[in-house]
Write a protein that binds this DNA or RNA. Sequence first.
DNA 1: GTGGTCTAGACCACA
DNA 2: GTGGTCTAGACCACA
Lengths: 123, 123, 123, 123
Amino acid sequence: MIQLDYKSGVPIYDQLVNGIIRLKMLGALRPGDSLPSVRSMAFKLSINPNTVQRAYQLLEERGIIYSAPGKGSFIADNKEGDDAIHNMAVQDFKSAVNDALLKGLTSAELTEIIKSIQKEDKR
Amino acid sequence: MIQLDYKSGVPIYDQLVNGIIRLKMLGALRPGDSLPSVRSMAFKLSINPNTVQRAYQLLEERGIIYSAPGKGSFIADNKEGDDAIHNMAVQDFKSAVNDALLKGLTSAELTEIIKSIQKEDKR
Amino acid sequence: MIQLDYKSGVPIYDQLVNGIIRLKMLGALRPGDSLPSVRSMAFKLSINPNTVQRAYQLLEERGIIYSAPGKGSFIADNKEGDDAIHNMAVQDFKSAVNDALLKGLTSAELTEIIKSIQKEDKR
Amino acid sequence: MIQLDYKSGVPIYDQLVNGIIRLKMLGALRPGDSLPSVRSMAFKLSINPNTVQRAYQLLEERGIIYSAPGKGSFIADNKEGDDAIHNMAVQDFKSAVNDALLKGLTSAELTEIIKSIQKEDKR
DNA sequence: GTGGTCTAGACCACA
DNA sequence: GTGGTCTAGACCACA
């Protein structure tokens, strides 16, 4: 369910973090669901366990999953996890907007771009 | 005029590239203007000439400046450089929008964020 | 497998870029194959790792290889890389033809030269 | 009559060499014609006299012009100069063909490219 | 003096 | 171990 792209330049652990967030957004992973263990996830994706470990750690720091030692890792309760994701996304998007404005794009252009992407997604 | 942040994780040569683009957008650097030489820029910013060289080379590849051995480096003529900057910025922003949508933000929210930033800038 | 010529005036990183392209054209390097690490390639060719790094980076920008920190560098999938090589080669050849015409060679002569070289290669 | 392009990356002295060759090919400079002195040529083109000196030196080495100390520089007799230009051009073109073949272009493609350029020129 | 290349070597993020 | 960044410093071509 999680596609990794080794060519993209995005660190694998980041891709894994985003992949799990995406699965949660899609409803494929629901609050309380258990995640595969670090080792089995590493095996499934053919990546290094250290890399999975790092992704889980980041997800836990951000309150999106929680780990019960000896039991495994689980998707956090709805509100806490969602807020964390939402806030991160808002922050990231704000800095993207700032970058774009600094490079001379206008708010109108940005709004236009959003609309155009929205249409593409509906196809 | 160019602030470097060593903690940010953003490569210094990238920060320099963005700084020069910003100065151009602000009109502080105009087409035909000469840039400080690689060495003097390095001295001003207390960084290594190689790092400046790399930034200048990236700017040249993107058509934003041009360099002539023995003469110096210069801001490129308007259209070519501006288009390059604009296209890069649009690409970057598009992928930011996609990221945000994947994390559950709605287009309406994104438009709202743009508006709020616009207001801040006017203060 | 890669011969460097220090007297030629052609930058070493460019020679390395061309050498790897040549090995790919010859089929000695195939899509998915891993390249020697930056360090080991540098050792083999008795050049500085930075120079290899630069060559690999250029190849990556052109879509001919891709690099993943912690994993290594790999020959890109066929189509993308081949197109990049082909387009570069066509551009280079076009400007060579223009230069030749400016210096008074006729198209007939140029075609003749191509034929003569073709015969040499068959020997 | 000679256009210099500072952005092209081609050394100015090379552009000057090519410019003079071109003027000769076009018949604007004929055997025996005198060239502007190093100083006046430098003034006309707003470039450094050293650069003109270097261009003249290269042209003389290749037998395209000759200098009479105290008198000035002159376009060489027809045959000698033309042969020199022709041979240089042939050499350059041969290596361009070799490069193209190494990068996988076929002789047929090269011949095709020549034809296409020929047509453009006739427009 | 100006840009461009290269070596030597340190240090960091990633897997 | 692997790629990526940066410093320090030398040397070259060019103007």
